[in-house]
């Protein structure tokens, strides 16, 4: 992006509402900030309507902070809880429909590659588990087959939360949810393995109780997608509202699952991705 895109025209500074002036004076554009800087700068996400204790909202907040180049990032989302927060996100972002996010992102990424050859334009897909694993599966997996240079981030709250808590492919077996009144009858889909098999050069499972690891996964995914090939990050984002636990327990639930041995984080890099990430991270040191 051109550095003057986030500059108020001379004379209008005084009439601009405070939140915009804060973004100009203390926002993240061009500053290379991260989770370590949280609490000290104006974030890309503005006040949003998601529930108290929402694991998805926290993960989205952390993901936006982890963007390596927010000034050149365009996000494609899908219908779901996260799409209620996206109007309040200070980068260009698209909501088209439910499940077509990776197809929209494919067209967008290719268009931007044509219009801005040699320039960084990160296209990041951020969508829920229903949009990614169920209704959008074809578009997601085919974008990987084609090797589209997209980072796909699943906010996995293990249900259709926006529509009132229905079972999704990512719900765990036996869970009683709407549309699964006798409990879900098949296992949680092993999407990271699908991502690997479909050609993702980077695959990670992370969660918001360890923000720096989440940040690393998101950054690596976007960097790999920029240069090597498709990348997939699955973020476990528990939903207190539909799973009916206390909003204060969102993060402890993740830890509990880990202790029970039914959730674990992972990271996979293809050899090319590994070499590339190594090169970047060494250069930084």
């Amino acid at each position: 992006m051109k550095s003057d895109l986030w500059q108020i025209s001379p004379g209008f500074e005084e009439v601009m509402p405070a939140e915009y002036r804060e973004l100009v004076d203390n926002g993240p554009f061009g500053k290379k900030l991260g989770v370590a800087d949280m609490g000290t700068f104006k974030e890309l996400l503005e006040e949003h309507p998601l529930c108290a204790g929402c694991g998805l909202a926290l993960s989205l907040r952390l993901t936006l902070i982890a963007l390596p180049n927010p000034e050149d990032t365009i996000i494609v989302g899908a219908t779901g809880c996260s799409s209620l927060a996206f109007p309040q996100v200070s980068v260009h972002n698209i909501h088209s429909l439910f499940g077509n996010q990776n197809a929209v992102a494919t067209g967008l990424k290719r268009a931007l590659s044509l219009r801005f050859p040699g320039q960084v334009k990160d296209v990041v897909v951020i969508a829920g588990d229903g949009a990614t694993c169920d209704i959008g599966l074809e578009a997601v997996v085919h974008s990987w087959f084609r090797g589209e240079k997209l980072a796909t981030i699943m906010l996995d709250n293990e249900a259709y939360a926006n529509t009132g808590g229905q079972e999704s492919g990512m719900s765990r077996i036996g869970t009683v949810l709407n549309m699964a009144p006798q409990g879900k009858k098949f296992s949680k889909v092993n999407f990271p393995e699908i991502a690997k098999a479909a050609g993702c050069a980077y695959v990670a499972v992370a969660e918001p109780s360890r923000p720096k690891r989440l940040e690393q996964a998101v950054r690596r995914a976007i960097l790999v997608a920029r240069e090597i090939g498709p990348a997939y990050v699955q973020l476990f984002t528990p939903c207190p509202t539909n799973y009916k636990f206390k909003p204060s327990e969102t993060l402890s639930l993740i830890k509990k699952r880990e202790q029970e041995g039914v959730f674990q984080t992972m990271e996979y890099l293809s050899p090319e991705a590994e070499a590339y990430i190594k090169q970047i991270e060494e250069a930084k040191r």
Partner: peptide
Amino acid sequence: PDPNVIILHPNKKVSINQSRCKGCGL
């Protein structure tokens, strides 16, 4: 889960924007 609600000040103390806190307790 909400942005810019808990602010870190130069004195290494945090403060909370009470009008935007949803009270989740995390």
